[in-house]
Write a protein that binds this DNA or RNA. Structure first.
Length: 208
DNA sequence: CGTTCGATGCACT
DNA sequence: GTGCATCGAACGT
């Protein structure tokens, strides 16, 4: 079943944990692509410096202030679309970023959309927030779409509950003190899975 | 194996 | 004009 709105109208950390093991689905005329959510991050309120609501309401971050259960999609680094699910009651700006999926349906279409080499493993197809958007064909036009009533949705398929691990959010330089990243223990589809390689990436600081 | 850096577009100042 | 909630190629060990 598709997750109802009250699933999202809760504290963001609860939603972030409960989304692990649910299924993100994008249905088009051509194909259904879907995957099991194995990694999320919470972005909570104007006091969270890494949250897009930190500067207060703007045109861009308006979906964060809207009702829960809607998608907040935006372009990052000019290249990647990032998918969030709006949480908490309307007026309380918060969201969960979906960072990685284990591919379920439509793997052939995912490979086509990503123009992936045949050697690319299935667990790499939707590893990372930019990659999963590309594999599922999600773009800016999905911003503000209703995750409870649209071709882009999140379903509960009654899959076995996963062990969930919390850690610091990645890819940001502020708000690092919060352990608001959450992932399924042992999943190879989780981003930065290989210890010591991808995990050690850091943004270089301009030196004076 | 580890780390660095360019691509690329838009919101915000 | 600046700085991103990223990715992967390229380079140095």
């Amino acid at each position: 079943m598709t997750l109802p709105r009250d699933f999202y109208a809760r504290p963001t950390l609860e939603v972030a944990a409960d989304l692990i093991g649910k299924v993100l689905v994008h249905e088009t005329a051509r194909a259904i692509t879907s995957g099991i959510i194995v990694e999320t991050e919470a972005y909570i309120g104007e006091s969270d410096p890494a949250c897009h609501a930190a500067p207060g309401p703007t045109v861009r971050n308006a979906p964060l202030y809207g009702p829960p259960g809607f998608a907040y999609v935006y372009l990052n680094y000019g290249i990647h679309y990032l998918v969030n699910a709006i949480t908490e009651p309307e007026g309380s700006p918060a969201a969960v970023l979906i960072r990685a999926l284990e591919p379920l349906e439509g793997q052939a279409m995912m490979r086509r959309r990503r123009q992936a080499a045949a050697s690319l493993s299935a667990s790499s197809l939707c590893r990372g927030p930019g990659n999963l958007s590309r594999a599922l064909g999600i773009s800016l036009k999905h911003n503000r779409s209703d995750l409870t009533h649209s071709t882009l949705r999140i379903e509960d398929r009654g899959l076995v509950r996963r062990d969930v691990v919390w850690g610091p959010r990645v890819g940001i330089n502020v708000g690092v003190e919060h352990a608001w990243r959450c992932y399924a223990a042992g999943s190879e589809a989780v981003s930065l899975f290989k210890p010591g390689t991808r995990a050690s990436r850091r943004r270089s600081q301009p030196s004076g």
